[in-house]
Amino acid sequence: MKNKEKYIDIFVKSLAIDKKKFSEKLKYNDIPEWDSINHMTLMSGLEEGFNITMESDDIIDFSSFKKGIQILKKYKIN
């Protein structure tokens, strides 16, 4: 993923987590910062950062950092 640095940066900033706490194995609800409310903040960060509009189904399926990479491919973010 060419945009991986940017993707990680959005994750860290949107969930307001310490970069040390970040891991590519991160899944929804693994850490207090990624709860149902902050999930929407994360989606918002991705929309703004990559200039895309995400479908509701993708917001629902976005259950982990890795799954997010697959979903973003649909929006031509590689």
Binding site: S36, H39, M40, M43, M54, S56, I59, I60
Partner: peptide, 13 residues
């Protein structure tokens, strides 16, 4: 949680 409910996700979005 709410974001497993498509109809509600649309509203929140």
């Amino acid at each position: 949680s709410w974001f497993k409910n498509p109809r509600l996700v649309k509203k929140i979005k």
